[in-house]
Amino acid sequence: MAIEFKILNTSRIEDIVPLVEKLNNYKIPAHVLKDRVLNMVGQNYECAVIFDADKLIGICGLWFCTRHYAGKSVEVDHVFIDEAYRSQGLGKQFFNWIYNYVKSKGCETVELNTYSTNYASHKFYYNEGFKILGYHFLKKL
């Protein structure tokens, strides 16, 4: 394996759509995801990625902001690692890379949401030192 962690150049942002589509269990059509991803790049958003040689195998959206309760913060979003690469310590390595990257940008905290039924992610985030502070609510308009 030739694993590389980096920030994806915005000119290649559409490359993440197939992995985001898998994360969403194909519920949102690819063309809708593509439009949304293209809009995200102008909104304090970056995408950290994992490549194995030339193959994109992992993604993690990074939303940068300042919050009154947390200071300069990054919210990680749509974390996904290809199934063939799971349970090899890659998630921990990826998050360590992300922590160093966002610290270099002045972030004081990392926040995230995860699906309530994604139990494997809950265990991972607890092991990473994350604490539950509240509930995430969504209302469709």
Score class of each variant (00 low, 15 high):
Y45G: 03
Y45H: 05
A48I: 02
A48M: 03
V49I: 14
I50N: 05
F51C: 04
F51Y: 15
F51A: 07
D52H: 06
A53K: 13
K55N: 10
L56T: 05
L56D: 00
L56H: 00
I57S: 01
I57C: 02
G58L: 01
G58E: 01
I59T: 04
C60P: 07
G61P: 03
G61Q: 01
G61I: 01
L62E: 03
L62K: 06
F64D: 00
F64K: 01
R67M: 14
H68T: 11
Y69D: 12
A70R: 14
G71A: 12
K72D: 09
S73W: 04
S73G: 09
V74K: 01
E75Y: 05
V76E: 02
H78Y: 09
F80N: 12
I81D: 00
I81V: 15
I81C: 08
A84Q: 12
A84N: 12
Y85H: 14
R86A: 02
S87Y: 10
S87A: 14
S87F: 14
G89I: 12
G89H: 10
G91A: 07
G91T: 02
Q93Y: 01
F94I: 08
F95V: 02
N96R: 15
N96K: 14
N96G: 13
W97M: 05
W97F: 12
W97H: 02
I98V: 06
Y99A: 11
Y99V: 13
N100L: 04
Y101A: 03
K103E: 09
K105R: 11
K105W: 03
C107N: 13
T109R: 02
E111W: 04
L112M: 11
T114W: 05
T114H: 06
Y115V: 10
Y115D: 15
Y115L: 14
Y115I: 07
S116T: 15
T117S: 10
N118W: 07
Y119E: 15
A120E: 12
A120Q: 15
A120F: 09
S121T: 10
H122A: 07
H122E: 15
H122L: 10
K123C: 04
K123F: 03
K123Y: 05
F124W: 07
F124T: 02
Y125W: 15
Y125E: 03
Y126L: 13
Y126G: 05
N127S: 13
I132M: 09
L133T: 11
L133I: 13
L133G: 12
Y135D: 13
Y135F: 12
H136V: 03
F137V: 11
L138K: 08
L138M: 12
K139D: 05
K140W: 11
L141E: 11
L141F: 15
